[in-house]
Nucleic acid binder design. Structure first.
Lengths: 97, 97
DNA sequence: ATGACACTTCGATAAGTGTCTAATTGTTTT
DNA sequence: AAAACAATTAGACACTTATCGAAGTGTCAT
């Protein structure tokens, strides 16, 4: 019996993750959230990318939609964390090819 | 061009692989080549997809450009194989996030 | 050589996407 | 309440891409 965390991704999830990872900026954003010490804010990411807040918001929504990041809100700020279990599930799928 | 072994992927390779995997049809093509017993031909793939030969050619070029498949020619036919080392290198990169 | 087969290339098109500015919503501070 | 701050939404634009049909290239069979 497989553990909950090892369940396979749905078709839709697979596609959404692949799409989310396909944009270089989004990939970079993901690595930056991952490398950050503790949850990262949208503001902190904006300091690292020369794009408008609207564009950043769009990218974060894609990453959240793909469930590659977890988003919490703390007052005005966002708290962003990488969902590594999701990444792991995705790579497991790729390695089955 | 970097080898797929233990060496990391270049930035360009990472982006190209992610993009290649982001189209559902291309992902399916890749799994079908992988599931096939021995090298697969373009013709065999065309039997599985309702697209023109031109479109299939385009997708195979993307997969080849990303180095996700190896392409050999045998007379009229193509011989397609999955380059699993490349997939492995890509998943290794993702799991480092 | 002629024709059939297996792709490939070209030009076009419709749909998708990354980006912006401007306007909006929600939250904290004064 | 008003101003400031953080993020979102809406609408627009430029660029990319999945797709096609048609014409081209290389290979095998007759």
């Amino acid at each position: 019996m497989a553990k909950a965390g090892e369940a396979g991704l749905s078709e839709r999830q697979g596609v959404q993750i692949a799409r989310a990872l396909a944009d270089p900026r989004r990939y970079e954003i993901l690595t930056q959230i991952g490398a950050h010490d503790g949850p990262m804010s949208c503001r902190a990411l904006l300091a690292l990318h020369d794009v408008s807040a609207a564009t950043m918001s769009h990218h974060l929504k894609e990453l959240e939609g793909a469930e590659l990041i977890a988003v919490e809100r703390d007052g005005k700020s966002m708290l962003l964390k990488v969902r590594r279990k999701m990444l792991k599930a995705y790579t497991r799928r790729l390695n089955k090819i």
